[in-house]
Every structure is written in structure tokens, then in C-alpha cells.
Design a protein around this nucleic acid. Structure first.
Lengths: 345, 345
DNA sequence: GATTGGCACTCGGTGCCGGTGAGTGCCACC
DNA sequence: GGTGGCACTCACCGGCACCGAGTGCCAATC
């Protein structure tokens, strides 16, 4: 029973098609891969693979091309992720280590992925919801405006301006800053919601002498603002690089513009990445129609979480269906790992 | 002397070619524009225009197409910027007014330009060098690390972490924060360099009691950091939107990927925009080879400064040579004006 | 029963050919 | 200077024959 050989044939078809972009025929297969059987036998296997929905012929009298399902099978069972060379690993490591701040790390990472995979790279900023609070800074800006700056353990800074109902006292702001930091620093932002009421008590009790009612209000307002900032998922930024690789691939039947449009929609990217988070530290792959998003049916997404402990955010590569999956997976995994290491250090 | 009519012919050619993407011939011209002369006459004019380098024939026995120089002449002498309708203006105005913070303003502006012009939109963040300082926030982060947060009048926030030679005292940081803000707030960042030494004296004199030498060092370090942040031009962010419009235009002979590459290079975009700042409040146009940057020879850039008083930064639209210049110019100008208004308010 | 060689058939790709039509340049004329 | 006329050019299109890669099927073979 040729079950094994059939999968060998599938692997060979995927590899050849990825390499040449030509539909691959039975003769070519026997020539380039030592399968030990004749073209006629391959043809039988191909008929079976087509029956199973793993390959299709673009037209009669042409070779075969893998389907989404064919690539899926290849990725799941047939490819072994080839490790990067020591030199490559060292290059990634030093490039990332040279970054001067978080923005720079993210920028370098996204360019790195684009360059290694020859695809469109996507990097999500370390998530606010998940990373711990390092500092909250309050700045009075005129009469009744308060600037809240939230600093996370990963070095990310978020800001928000509040319009206050009543005027604020410089000194009260200073006291609040002190208390708030004492009470809330170290908390994961996702925990903040749960412990909010306790914090309000803790903090405002500490501040108040006379105006303790007003202080409690102030604390609540500030915490609300922090919570709201977090709730606003749009604050979770995604950066993209390597869109030029799309245009070069020339694999898109219609046009690349729907893909480019999708890549400009932070919300969409964020959703796609988030949906791939079933196993956060592993590399996940979505092929063609698997991610249910029409404009990207002609693309695959390879993505991994990164960050310490629980993954904090995700990186990924968006490219054509016809791509070097083992290579992409290896690159994405490597960058995710080094990114995790850099951010922890 | 048909000098006038010749330019009419050029205008007609540009308009028809922009509308149809077909090289335009003498007969078509007489039919679509009431020039009052016969095709044969037009042919003579066209020969003269070709002689002058304003139009070319892609091949013998084809119509004519404008050259870079032809578009330039059209833009400079032949087109009248058509005003946007009241409804359009109102739409722009309210869309921008709904923005909740600076990031949102920029994001809305760039999308707006992309949508109005059907081209790639580019918006430079209000420049750090030029805008005034609203607040400096210092945050001690452990032993000898200090986070400096710079807040500008336009609401932009920049951060930087300093490694200090000697440990810092919480109280000293608080005093420094106070003094520094008292002394430096309101200064344009570009002035900072000049008055730095005076500031060092002013501020550290105010802080010090015993450790005034160490304090002066601290002040200098912080000011250095601020200055360095400013010097680092890469901090001047540029955001891009509407790259999908490129793919749709189908006007690019080779491929759009060099253009996409260029658009990802902040530094390049920044340089191109900056070079167009000869008259900051007016709209400037660079056509094809005029901007000496090889990957963009097949594109034109329409750009305007925006911001209060002295222009603070620039916006622009990058698109194919064959484009509706009057429309693009009108849209860019309108958005720049409303942007200026919003930021001032 | 799996494998194989043989064979007829399909069909996309290429090159050649002639016709068509838009467009030009030029020239003689007004 | 403007115009009508005319010969010429050349991209484009449809038709056609040919080539070759590739298939499916079948009978023969291991």
C-alpha cells in the first residue's frame, strides 16, 4: 500500500511548486526526486491525491498544484523545521541587542522578519493588558486637565488626557502619584479591573485629610481612565514591514491591493493575530481560507507569541500560499525567541 | 502666433490622458475639446510641443503622452485649483475635529488624504524641533535609571531612559522636575541648545544645598538627553496610508515594489518632505525625476506644510505621474489647513 | 495487486500572417 | 498660419498550425 509514497509525492509536489511556480507533472517528479517508481505510478498517486483534495490541476493537461489542504498537510506532517545556522542566530541576536529602546526593538524585529522570510512582517507591541505596571505618572496641565502616563514593565508608554470635573491641587496630584504607585505598581494591567475598588479605598484613604471625598473621586477617575485605555483595544499597536515583498512575489491572481488594505487595518491584523493564540509560545500557521477573512484568502499567516512567561504579544509573517513554510516558520520562531530574551533582560 | 493655443493643446492632452490612460491623438482632441481648429493644425502644434519636450509619442503612429516637463508646465501655468465643495470641507473639518488625541488626529488625517486623493498619503508628526515644550517629567526607575518624558505643546510625548553615573535621590529628582519645568517650559525645542548652559546654572543653583555639584551634573545629563532625542531625526515619525491605491493605479511600468520599499523608509520620506519646504505654507509639487530619488522616478509628490505660524511639519500625497493634479493639490491643501486649525485650537 | 510501458488525447503557449484602424508627417493649397 | 488630402507606420487582433508537456486509461508484467 502506497500511503507513505503518496505523501512523499505530495511533499515533492509542494517543494517543486514552491521552487518553480510551475504546476508539476509526473515526469518532472521522477526526475527531480528519487522516488523509485515510474511516472505512470506517480500519476496514479496524483489521481488519488486529487481525489482527496490535496492537489488540483489548473487545467487538463497541466501539472498539479497544492490546494490549501495540501499545504496544510505538508506543514503538519511532512516538513521538518530546519534550524537556522549559528551565524544567522548570532546575527539576529546582536541586531536585536543593539536596539536602544522598545520602539527600536520592535522596528528592528519587524524588519528582520521581513528580510528573513521575504514576506510581509507584522509585530504587535507588547500587550498592555498583559504586561505589568511599572509606573503611573500624573501631570497637571492647567486648570482641570490631567495627563496620565502609564509605563509598563516592557517599557511601553501610554498617555491619556483627562478633563476633570473640579480643579486639582498640585499637591494633591503629587500625593496621589505617590500613593497610586505604591499601591498599583507590579500589578498586571489585566488584574486592575478586579482590584479597582480596593485600590480606590487604599489610595484615597492615604491621601485625604480634609477633602478625602474629592480625592476618592479623583482616584476613581484616574483608574477609570487607565482601565478605559486598556479596554480600547485600538491602543494595541501593530507595525508592518516588507510590503514590497508582496509585489515581488507575483503570486496574486487578482491584485495585491486588497491585501495591502487589510495590512493597513490595525484592528483586522490584531484580530487575526489574536485568533492564532491557541498555543501561545508555539508557531501557528493559517493557510488561505483557514483564517476567515476574505481579502486574505490568497495568503498564509505564520505567527508566534513572544514575551516572558505568558506570551505578551505576537509576531508574524503574511505571504502568498506558495511559500517556503519551513523557512518562514524557522525565522518567525527564532525572532520570537530572541525577542523574548531581549525583553526579559 | 499660436503660442496660446499650443498650451491649450497641452492642457487638453494632459486632461485627456489623465482621464483615459490612452495616448491622445489629434482627432480625439478636436472632438472632445472645442479648439476651433482642424486635426492637421493640432498635429503641427503637437510636433512643436514634442520638440519642446513637453509631450512624447510612445511609438510611431500612436498618440502623445505628457512628459515630466509637460506635467510641470500644466501644474504651473495651466491648471486652476478647484475648490472643494462646502460639503467636502465640512466633512474634513468634522472628521478631524472628532479626534481624541494627537495620534488620532494624525491617523485620521492620513486616511483622509488617502481617500480624497486616491493616492498614498503621508503625514509627518508635528516636529519635535519646532514645537514648544509643555512639560518635562522625570521618573526614577530603580537605582540609577531615570526615565525622561518630554511633552510638547502639540501633545506629543517622547520618552528616553537614562543610565546615570551615580545613584539618584528621589527628592532630588522631584526638585529637579520642579525647577526644570519652571525654567524650560514654553521654550521651542530648537532653542534649547542655545540656552542650555544658562539653564544648567539656573536650575542647579535652585536645587542645590549641599550636593550642588552633583546636581549640576544631573541637570546637564538630562538636558543632554533631551537634546540628543531631538537631534535624532529618526524620532520624527511619518505615517503612511493608502498603499493599496498604488496597486490599483496600474501605472507602474516595472513594479510597485521599489515604491513600497521607499515608503517604508521613514528617513527617505522625511528627507523628501523636508526638501519640499521652500515655501512652508504653500503646496509644493515634485514630478518624476524632479525629486532626485531613483525608486520614485515614476511618482509625483504633492505636499504642504501644516501647523501654526511657522509650519510645524508636512503632509503629502505620493502617486503616479498620471494623476489629477488639481484635485490632489486641492485635497492636500484643504487637509493641511484644517489640520493647522485643529492643532491650534 | 501494485507497477509499468504504451498510446491517444487535451490544451496552453508560441510563432506566423494578414487585415484593420488610429495616428502621424508632409505637402500642396487657400 | 490653417487646412484637406494622402501615403505610411505600426500596434493590435483574430485565425491557424504546430509543439510539447501532461493526463487518463488499458493491457501487460512482476
Amino acid at each position: 500500500m502506497g500511503e507513505d509514497r503518496r505523501l512523499d509525492v505530495l511533499r515533492a509536489i509542494v517543494e517543486d511548486y514552491v521552487a518553480t511556480r510551475e504546476p508539476v507533472g509526473s515526469r518532472a517528479l521522477t526526475e527531480r526526486h528519487h522516488l523509485g517508481v515510474s511516472p505512470a505510478t506517480i500519476r496514479n498517486d496524483m489521481a488519488a491525491l486529487e481525489e482527496a483534495g490535496l492537489i488540483v490541476a489548473p487545467h487538463t493537461s497541466a501539472g498539479r498544484v497544492p490546494t490549501d489542504l495540501g499545504y496544510r498537510t505538508f506543514v503538519d506532517h511532512l516538513s521538518q523545521v530546519r534550524a537556522l545556522s549559528a551565524a544567522e542566530r548570532r546575527a539576529i541576536s546582536t541586531l536585536l541587542a543593539e536596539a536602544v529602546d522598545l520602539d527600536d526593538v520592535v522596528d528592528r524585529a519587524v524588519r528582520l522578519i521581513a528580510q528573513l522570510t521575504h514576506q510581509v512582517a507584522v509585530v504587535q507591541y507588547p500587550s498592555l493588558r498583559r504586561s505589568a505596571l511599572r509606573h503611573v505618572e500624573l501631570v497637571a496641565m492647567g486648570e482641570r486637565r490631567l495627563l496620565v502616563v502609564i509605563i509598563t514593565a516592557t517599557g511601553r508608554v501610554e498617555q491619556r488626557t483627562l478633563e476633570l470635573a473640579e480643579g486639582v491641587d498640585e499637591a494633591a496630584v503629587a500625593r496621589l502619584r505617590l500613593r497610586l504607585n505604591a499601591a498599583a505598581v507590579g500589578l498586571r494591567l489585566s488584574d486592575l479591573d478586579r482590584v479597582r475598588e480596593r485600590l480606590v479605598e487604599q489610595v484615597s484613604a492615604g491621601i485625604g485629610t480634609a477633602t478625602s471625598a474629592g480625592d476618592a473621586d479623583l482616584v476613581r477617575t484616574v483608574l477609570d481612565a487607565i482601565a478605559e485605555t486598556l479596554a480600547q483595544e485600538s491602543e494595541e499597536r501593530v507595525v508592518v514591514a516588507g510590503t514590497a515583498n508582496l509585489a515581488r512575489s507575483a503570486d496574486f491572481a487578482l491584485s495585491i491591493s486588497p491585501v495591502l488594505e487589510a495590512l493597513e487595518e490595525q484592528v483586522v491584523l490584531l484580530r487575526l493575530l489574536t485568533e492564532m493564540a491557541e498555543d501561545e509560545s508555539a508557531v501557528a500557521v493559517r493557510i488561505g481560507r483557514e483564517h476567515r477573512y476574505e481579502p486574505l484568502v490568497e495568503t498564509s499567516i505564520v505567527s508566534s507569541g513572544y514575551g516572558d512567561g505568558v506570551a505578551v504579544a505576537r509576531i508574524g509573517a503574511v505571504g502568498p500560499l506558495r511559500q517556503d513554510y519551513p523557512g518562514t516558520i524557522a525565522a518567525v520562531r527564532a525572532v520570537a525567541r530572541y525577542l523574548t530574551r531581549i525583553l526579559a533582560g
